[in-house]
Design a protein around this nucleic acid. Sequence first.
DNA 1: CCAAAAGTGTTTAAATTACACCCATGG
DNA 2: CCATGGGTGTAATTTAAACACTTTTGG
Lengths: 228, 228
Amino acid sequence: MKKIIKQYFNVAVSVDNVVFGFDADGLKVLLISRGSEPFPGSWALPGDLISPEMDLEYSAERVLKQLTGLDQLFMEQIQTFGRVDRHPFGRVFTIAYFALIKVEQYHPQASSWAKDVAWFKVTEIPTLPFDHREILEYARRELKNRIRTQTLVFELLPKYFTLTELQFIHESILEEEFDVRNFRKKTLSSGIIEETGKLQKNVTHRPAKLYRFNASKAKQLDFEGGIL
Amino acid sequence: MKKIIKQYFNVAVSVDNVVFGFDADGLKVLLISRGSEPFPGSWALPGDLISPEMDLEYSAERVLKQLTGLDQLFMEQIQTFGRVDRHPFGRVFTIAYFALIKVEQYHPQASSWAKDVAWFKVTEIPTLPFDHREILEYARRELKNRIRTQTLVFELLPKYFTLTELQFIHESILEEEFDVRNFRKKTLSSGIIEETGKLQKNVTHRPAKLYRFNASKAKQLDFEGGIL
DNA sequence: CCAAAAGTGTTTAAATTACACCCATGG
DNA sequence: CCATGGGTGTAATTTAAACACTTTTGG
């Protein structure tokens, strides 16, 4: 028993969060500027070693909150990365999560050892330490899959949104274009988004109708897949 | 740095493998009878603590080989489980993998601390220790998803198989029935399975044609999804 | 000749794709 | 009145679903 502890209970576990956000110029990822070893000064996924006393799910939320102030986000586990040499301090397994955020409604702020925090377009990511690049690419693929098979696109949109935004977000994530009329027909016929009667304000063109996701209708219809 | 080591490098990581097999009476899972603490004598998923010197992927293969003799199987990571109290010896994160096996072509044998090894129908699983029940159910759901989105059903079938077997395996995994004619139309039209000219032998009814998966054709067609 | 599973086509309904013009607003 | 993005319908094609009888073999 003592031998077992010595032989096996000597590794560490971390979580790394891939936080996706969405705004007028497309899909973004939240990175922090590291203020401690290893790799101080470099942009990286908000992640940290986790303490043995907390459940895994909760640890992921806590790390994110500690580094960025973000809380109460939609989060799901994606994959664990365990290459022997992925961390310079020793053997660290990292469990990657992704989180989806309504950019307008939260204001991430660096805290703890994070010196800064910023959104980066997914097409303009700087060099990342550890295997964070690999984790990010994996997360992007998973987001593609899950946007098609789960009803989670609304986690990225504000409460009121236009169909054009809904289409643009799908196009950004799936890296594919859709026909405007077919897209509208399909999404509206799902029965899970509804008109609000409101219109866009202060736009220099015909104002678009604002829609909202009807979660209770979705539940009632047993709607669980993607909207496309 | 020393503090960090003391504070974080004191947990363990294990892998647990959910090995799916398929034969005439349906979908099976391979379990071992545990010959060591904790839970000696109980049936469990073949899994074990892993050593800090090996890559994660390789650890999963190695644990499976050590306990059951099985090697060179198709394996994929599914999810990591990290409830604080899931292991009585301390904080153990476990990374679950699933493996798919052609039952006819391998003969699992208990070794190391596994005292026995046996196939159990997925509908007749005994009580399992740790959170193995939860892991198994998660693996079944993942298998359902992946059978529809990846070309992996052939990992469970022998080299030569009948279309009835192909249909039965889909029905077993997806827990859903399909129309014979529609099933055959769809699978054959995929272009990735081919007749071999061979027939079943020693059956007490009209012998079925034997087909085989044409992997190079699949690659050529960029066929990546499920066959249904 | 019987039992048991293999094998085979057509019709209907539903979903997907392709495609082009007018509308409402602010400046 | 112009620029900008919002908004709309129909026909053609493809895909999915429903459905019942004949064939081949071994015993």
